[in-house]
């Protein structure tokens, strides 16, 4: 047990836990951030994706100790921002959401992509989403959702 501090969605939090505890479990269990999903627990699916100091990471692969002092953003941290709303609306209009289990992770991947490249082409989008698995959509409409977000959100990123 150790007390570990980090910034979660803009607020400092301090968690008393085993530093080896997965960040995913800390977020879901201790912080009740259930927008972060567990799809595989082994770094393969991206359902647990969060931003760590601005970089897209799989929270199931990060021990709490490694998050110390860093800035973590979960879907809860962006869904009510202008960027988050833009992505969510674009996903809605594109038909990008089916069962929805992968979608918060897809939103995080989209946010990470548009931050570094606000006008991605189809292949750049497919590349950026390739760490996030979706079993329902076949990806076409998610790709379209990202395109719509990038068109509409020109000035946001």
């Amino acid at each position: 047990m150790k007390e570990i501090k980090f910034i979660l969605n803009g607020k400092e939090v301090s968690v008393k836990a085993d530093p080896l505890k997965r960040l995913l479990d800390v977020l879901r269990e201790d912080e009740k951030m259930t927008g972060v999903k567990e799809g595989c627990g082994e770094g393969e699916c991206g359902a647990c994706a969060v931003l760590k100091d601005g970089v897209l990471v799989n929270s199931c692969m990060i021990p709490l100790g490694a998050a110390e002092g860093s800035e973590i953003v979960t879907p809860e941290g962006i869904r009510e921002t202008d960027k988050g709303k833009c992505i969510i609306d674009a996903f809605g209009d594109a038909g990008a959401v089916q069962c929805g289990f992968c979608t918060p992770g897809m939103m995080m991947a989209t946010e990470a992509l548009l931050t570094i490249n606000n006008k991605p082409d189809e292949s750049e989008i497919r590349e950026a989403l390739s760490g996030n698995l979706c079993r329902c959509t076949g990806y076409d409409l998610i790709v379209k959702g990202v395109q719509i977000a990038s068109e509409r959100g020109k000035d946001l990123w």
Binding site: T34, K37, E38, I88, G92, A96, P104, M107
Partner: peptide, 14 residues
Amino acid sequence: DAKEKAGGWTKYIG
């Protein structure tokens, strides 16, 4: 259901 799912509001069993 698009918005609630995309933003991670929707609750699944876990």
